[in-house]
Amino acid sequence: MTQSPEPVELRPGLLVVPVQRQVLDDVVPAAAEHCVLVNVGRPYRLLETLDSRQQATTGLPGDVAVVPAGAEFAVRTRDGAPQDVSTLVVAVAPQLLDEALSAAGSHRTAGPAPVVGARSPAVATLARLLEAGLDDTSGLGRLMLESTGLALVAALARDHTTARTPTTAAPAGLSRGQLERVLRRVEDDLAGPLSVGELAALAAVSEFHFSRQFRLATGASPHQYVLSRRLARARQLLTATDLPIAVVAARCGFADQSHLTRHVRRALGTTPAALRAAGRGA
């Protein structure tokens, strides 16, 4: 039986879908996007055909296939019996891959190389993080997914394309005006989702340029910075107001009280209630 969950759009041009299915003899039609497939289940034994080349694969957990846009991908079992396969599929628009290379100061000379049954540690690790975070629908959860997805695209560009580096230097950090616009939006909308795409649009740069330049300007990734500001606002509200902890969580962009508690404990080694009591000298 095949399970076909709805794709999760991390941002335009970047989709993730977990697929659990029985494979016998399947053809995956050519797509307009580059597709990265990562085995997140048990080992399998398949014959995989990509770019007119057939390869017998023993799919270990974490094995990666990269199917370039426009390529047809076919799989069939070696023994003729159906096999259960669990795969995380990440669809990447070619333009997004080009943006990643451009942000790094490189130019693509070819699309991603077609590959099946490969060990690609960075891609596999990031795919696992995506899979683990798909159920977190909070604003911070979505921001983490988007950042992880963009990191996977960067790993795809680095490890699975041939690129050349121009003589011109990569862009420096954000200008003072760009940074002020972004930081002001963060402070004004801590309860909102604050996606990387939205913040990059404020700075008028691509997501890849933005993440790199923001780290140069602040020393933190967009996700790390937003989380730190949300925790600072929560601490202020806990110690200076009598708002219920659940309300504080909502006003600071956390999904609920337990979500706030988890991040406070991780960052500060305490709980919101204990933080409130300590702030009042209790």
Rank of each mutant, 00 (worst) to 15 (best):
T218M: 05
V123D: 03
S228K: 10
P171E: 11
V38M: 11
R11I: 00
G111Q: 09
L199I: 03
L231D: 12
S4M: 03
P171R: 15
P222A: 01
L150M: 13
G62M: 11
L96T: 03
P18L: 01
L97V: 04
A124H: 04
A124T: 06
S86A: 14
L268T: 00
P112D: 02
V27S: 12
L150D: 08
A100L: 04
P82L: 07
V27R: 12
T270L: 10
G117K: 09
T168D: 04
D25L: 12
G139D: 01
N39K: 07
V67K: 08
V67M: 07
Q224L: 06
D26C: 01
L152C: 02
V8A: 11
F73S: 05
V75N: 02
H263E: 08
E180C: 08
L143Q: 13
A267W: 06
L15M: 11
S52Q: 15
G117M: 08
F208Q: 09
L24V: 06
R229N: 03
E146V: 06
P68R: 03
R276P: 02
L10F: 13
R76V: 03
R176W: 15
G41F: 09
L134R: 14
P244R: 09
L46S: 04
F254M: 03
D98K: 13
Q95R: 15
R276I: 09
R262H: 15
V40T: 15
G133V: 00
I245G: 01
D256N: 13
T167I: 04
R185T: 12
E207M: 07
T57P: 02
T77R: 12
T137A: 05
P112F: 03
D189P: 01
P171V: 06
L129S: 14
G105Q: 09
P121C: 01
G139H: 08
A255T: 03
E33H: 11
V36R: 05
E33Q: 12
A132N: 10
E198F: 06
V226R: 02
L199M: 09
S228Q: 14
R280P: 13
V28N: 02
T167Y: 04
T77C: 09
Q55M: 12
P244V: 08
Q236R: 15
V28T: 12
L88K: 14
P222G: 05
D84H: 12
A103W: 05
E131G: 07
A201T: 09
R181I: 03
R176C: 11
A32E: 10
P193H: 05
T58N: 10
Q3I: 00
Q213C: 00
D189I: 00
G192V: 01
L134I: 10
H209N: 10
S120F: 02
P18G: 01
V85N: 02
S86D: 15
T162W: 06
L88Y: 15
L150W: 05
D51A: 13
L88F: 14
R262G: 12
Y44H: 13
V116A: 07
H263C: 07
C35Q: 14
A200E: 02
T168Y: 03
R119N: 10
E72R: 13
A203P: 10
T109P: 08
E187Q: 15
V115P: 01
M1W: 10
S258G: 09
G41P: 12
Q224D: 14
V89A: 15
P18F: 06
